[in-house]
Simulated scan of single mutants.
Amino acid sequence: MHHVGMTVTDLAAAVAFFEALGMELEGKAHMEGEFVDGVIGLDGSTSDIAMMKTPDDRYRIEFSQFQTPQSIDGSSHAPIHALGLRHVAFVVDDLDDTLARLKPHGAEVVRNIETYENLLRTCYVRGPEGILVELCQYFT
């Protein structure tokens, strides 16, 4: 897998949230033209993208903010059982510290922090624009 793509209306907020989570900004670019239109299937598209990577350089998320055509609501606050891509999961060293770093960026725990069979503590948080992020802290 190379990356997962997510469309947002506030690119800066998405970048700030995922930097607080520990991801690194790999680069930003403005996208438009025949090549992009041909790949994504939208004529006359213009967008700005930000590619974020995990500190170990293994995983990436590409965030896109479209200027044209205007983005449409894709049910950004859909519950977890709705069809389609619903969440991204991260292993963290310290769940409480991670939640504290994400809180200023609007992150809220969906319901509870739960412990599974003394193996891990986990929870879902909503990030910018309703992005669901699962956080997992494994016990050592």
Rank of each mutant, 00 (worst) to 15 (best):
residue 127 G to W: 00
residue 108 E to H: 08
residue 122 T to Y: 12
residue 72 I to V: 14
residue 114 E to V: 15
residue 112 N to A: 15
residue 110 V to F: 06
residue 6 M to H: 04
residue 80 I to W: 01
residue 125 V to I: 09
residue 85 L to W: 05
residue 2 H to V: 15
residue 38 G to S: 06
residue 43 D to W: 01
residue 100 A to Y: 06
residue 67 Q to V: 15
residue 10 D to G: 11
residue 42 L to C: 00
residue 97 D to A: 15
residue 43 D to I: 00
residue 90 F to Q: 09
residue 92 V to Y: 04
residue 4 V to G: 01
residue 77 H to D: 11
residue 100 A to T: 15
residue 37 D to K: 02
residue 64 S to W: 04
residue 12 A to C: 00
residue 87 H to S: 07
residue 109 V to C: 04
residue 38 G to I: 01
residue 23 M to Q: 10
residue 133 V to S: 04
residue 73 D to W: 00
residue 105 H to Q: 14
residue 79 P to N: 10
residue 112 N to I: 03
residue 29 A to Y: 03
residue 107 A to W: 00
residue 65 Q to F: 05
residue 5 G to V: 08
residue 30 H to D: 13
residue 3 H to W: 05
residue 19 E to W: 04
residue 52 M to S: 10
residue 135 L to C: 08
residue 130 G to Q: 01
residue 100 A to S: 15
residue 12 A to Q: 12
residue 56 D to I: 11
residue 121 R to Y: 08
residue 73 D to Y: 05
residue 28 K to V: 15
residue 96 D to L: 12
residue 41 G to M: 01
residue 94 D to T: 14
residue 9 T to C: 04
residue 132 L to M: 13
residue 4 V to W: 01
residue 138 Y to C: 03
residue 126 R to C: 07
residue 61 I to P: 03
residue 1 M to G: 15
residue 138 Y to R: 12
residue 125 V to E: 00
residue 18 F to R: 07
residue 17 F to P: 09
residue 2 H to Q: 11
residue 76 S to T: 05
residue 100 A to V: 15
residue 132 L to S: 02
residue 68 T to D: 09
residue 69 P to N: 09
residue 86 R to T: 12
residue 99 L to S: 08
residue 55 P to Q: 05
residue 12 A to F: 02
residue 107 A to N: 07
residue 105 H to S: 14
residue 17 F to N: 07
residue 97 D to M: 14
residue 39 V to Y: 02
residue 94 D to M: 11
residue 82 A to S: 13
residue 78 A to F: 02
residue 139 F to S: 05
residue 139 F to R: 07
residue 15 V to Y: 00
residue 97 D to R: 10
residue 54 T to N: 05
residue 64 S to K: 02
residue 50 A to W: 00
residue 62 E to I: 07
residue 10 D to A: 12
residue 109 V to M: 05
residue 36 V to H: 03
residue 118 N to P: 00
residue 131 I to Q: 09
residue 52 M to K: 07
residue 45 S to H: 04
residue 136 C to V: 13
residue 22 G to P: 11
residue 44 G to P: 09
residue 28 K to G: 13
residue 107 A to M: 06
residue 135 L to V: 10
residue 50 A to D: 04
residue 59 Y to C: 14
residue 30 H to Q: 13
residue 42 L to E: 02
residue 15 V to L: 05
residue 69 P to I: 13
residue 18 F to N: 13
residue 129 E to K: 04
residue 83 L to C: 00
residue 32 E to F: 08
residue 81 H to Q: 11
residue 68 T to L: 09
residue 82 A to W: 03
residue 13 A to G: 12
residue 115 T to Q: 12
residue 119 L to H: 06
residue 20 A to M: 09
residue 41 G to A: 06
residue 84 G to Y: 01
residue 9 T to M: 06
residue 1 M to N: 12
residue 49 I to H: 00
residue 124 Y to G: 15
residue 73 D to C: 02
residue 61 I to G: 02
residue 4 V to Y: 01
residue 21 L to R: 10
residue 41 G to C: 02
residue 137 Q to H: 05
residue 138 Y to H: 13
residue 112 N to V: 10
residue 124 Y to T: 13
residue 26 E to P: 00
residue 113 I to D: 08
residue 37 D to Q: 06
residue 1 M to Q: 10
residue 74 G to K: 03
residue 57 D to R: 14
residue 19 E to G: 10
residue 79 P to C: 01
residue 37 D to P: 03
residue 125 V to P: 05
residue 34 E to H: 06
residue 25 L to V: 15
residue 109 V to N: 06
residue 32 E to M: 11
residue 33 G to V: 11
